[in-house]
Design a protein around this nucleic acid. Structure first.
Lengths: 244, 244
DNA sequence: CTATCGATTTCGCAC
DNA sequence: GTGCGAAGTCGATAG
């Protein structure tokens, strides 16, 4: 069978199972009572409690409590898991370099250890991303405004690549910044950087007011709208995918 | 015992165990072969594969493969889990409103279902955050520069609250933006917004060049340094916690 | 509720 | 490796 599981093992039994599972490259879950110490980019301490520890063969480690989407402690992929029994207790330690980080889980009780061989089945297809929004605009440029013609995507500039670049009906250059969801002031700043870079690039013959900025997003906060208006930019309300 | 676990249950047995675990408010882990459909802010499809499904009593749902720190699919806390057997197969569905989102996991095989009652033990203490950096500066303002005197934290402005506000040795107002790690151009934009808001606020008598901007961060990218210098702002290299 | 911003953000891609 | 920006970001706090 591809799944092994032990109930209330001794700390030594748990260690053996764990090392076997490491060797097999299994996905591992451990229910147990433990304390946790993390030291790296930041540092945390977590006292005794019942938790779920997940160990992945790619080096990822996750500690979950009964609450929350995100693990209370973790270690990213690329870390190295090691297990040992110290003072009669199972200790699992996951370390990585650059930055140097260590996650240490000390068990007082191991309730259930389960391991399963898992490969493949990771090919997720996602719809509704910013890239979908870009595709939609390239296929129907008039959604931005009548007469708009995209000429490039990811056009380079000194401020970084612009999402979409093109010309309007009057031949003015247009910088388009895309956001898949409602935006705040930061997105306006981003657009402004690109517009400014392009204005400097185009130089004297095509002066400031010819380069336009357009923010394409489903909606926009008041403060962002204000900053957008200050800069003389436009907002076009558009979602990544058409409503059905 | 606080942990229940079943091995290779029938789909109906799995359903019973799952419903019992829901009733008890357990933290649940299911190893099994399944397909996954998500529909909400975006939409995803994931074909058949072996995965770990974690269901929490607060409504969070996580689907993990053998790779990565983040779940391949998930549902945030506050969702509602429901289980059923459809066409002889266990189906777990987690839904929430605002936004409307649904995660559906259809099992072809349930290898191992484990559930544990978990409460408490969630009081994490963390060190090395931006707040620690602020505390450090308030205790030793000379780390920013000789003669600097902080007068407020989270000082409100039309652009939002400033991390630290104060005056320099010459009596000039200083806006300080804190970052716990290396920063890019976005942080300069954030600082610039605060400085601009303060300049407008102070009005005519204390004109532009009197309001200073200081970015406190361990380090800074070249592009960010350039933008900082364009604006006439300063960078102070400082970490959230003192080196030991 | 919405808006804003931090985060051990993670993740992916380009240079 | 670093830099940059997206993400179904999440999460916490203030209004």
């Amino acid at each position: 069978m591809t799944v092994t599981s032990v109930h209330d093992p001794s700390h030594r039994e748990a260690l053996w199972e764990l090392e076997d599972a490491f060797d097999r490259g299994d996905l591992i879950s451990i229910f147990g009572r433990c304390t946790i110490v993390y030291e790296g980019r930041a540092a945390t301490d977590l006292g005794t409690g019942d938790r779920l520890l997940v160990l992945k063969p790619d080096g990822a480690a996750l500690v979950h409590t009964d609450e929350g989407h995100r693990p209370v402690n973790w270690q990213p992929p690329g870390s190295e898991h090691r297990a040992a029994v110290r003072e009669g207790r199972l200790r699992v330690r996951s370390t990585r370099n650059n930055p140097d980080e260590t996650l240490t889980v000390r068990f007082s009780d191991v309730h259930r250890l389960t391991a399963m061989a898992v490969t493949g089945g990771r090919d997720l297809t996602l719809h509704g991303s910013e890239e979908d929004l870009r595709t939609r605009i390239l296929e129907q440029p008039e959604l931005v405004e009548p007469g708009f013609e995209p000429t490039a995507t990811e056009r380079p500039s000194s401020a970084g690549p612009m999402d979409v670049f093109g010309v309007d009906a009057d031949g003015n250059p247009v910088v388009v910044e895309l956001k898949r969801r409602r935006v705040g002031p930061d997105a306006v700043g981003q657009l402004a950087r690109y517009v400014r870079a392009l204005r400097e690039e185009l130089g004297a013959e095509e002066r400031d007011r010819t380069v336009r900025g357009v923010l394409v997003a489903p909606s926009i906060t008041d403060r962002a709208a204000e900053r957008l208006s200050d800069r003389g930019f436009d907002h076009v309300a558009l979602e990544p995918t058409a409503e059905e």
